[in-house]
């Protein structure tokens, strides 16, 4: 596994991993999410939760590949929750609310030809995470933070 930088803070409270994401490289898209999925499987998380996180992570990774120049995926693992933070250097999202709508996409023709850019990315991420936070600065980049709780939260 390349690109792992694991660190633990405190008494086994949190583990962190970081993977780089390259913009425009669709062949490698999914590399970071795959590696994190492997780790989560080993940490005996519920398979159903892993699948939700895997889908959300992959969507976020593809967003970076499709829209940004470069980025990184960091995951913070604790027994209570999995937090994935995807940061990129790129054009940013002008209207986050609009981008969240199903079917809305600014993907280029080239990206769509590759079967991406259907405008389902962000809404799919939202569906598969418990907490979603997106911050974006035009011409600078975007930070997507997704949190999934490891145990079903009481309402």
């Amino acid at each position: 596994m390349s690109g792992i930088g694991s660190g633990i803070t405190g008494e086994m409270k949190e583990m962190t991993y970081a993977f780089p994401i390259e913009g425009g490289d669709f062949i490698k898209a999914g590399h970071a999410s795959s590696n994190i999925k492997k780790i989560l499987n080993q940490l005996s998380l519920d398979p159903a939760i892993i699948r939700r996180i895997a889908v959300a992570m992959y969507e976020a990774e593809v967003n970076v590949v499709a829209h940004a120049y470069r980025g990184s995926m960091k995951v913070f693992i604790s027994p209570e929750k999995i937090r994935v933070r995807v940061e990129d250097e790129g054009p940013g999202i002008p209207d986050i609310e609009k981008a969240m709508q199903e079917g809305y996409s600014t993907a280029s023709e080239k990206v769509r030809e590759m079967g991406f850019g259907a405008g389902m990315g962000l809404s799919n991420i939202k569906k598969n995470t418990d907490k979603l936070d997106i911050r974006s600065t035009i011409n600078k980049g975007t930070v997507v933070e997704m949190t999934t709780f490891t145990k079903p939260k009481e309402a």
Binding site: S6, M12, Q42, L43, S44, P79
Partner: peptide
């Protein structure tokens, strides 16, 4: 077969 331990905290220790 991938689980390092049934308990997540133990699994994290083993992973480290």
């Amino acid at each position: 077969i991938m689980k390092l331990d049934e308990d997540m905290v133990q699994a994290m220790r083993k992973m480290k």
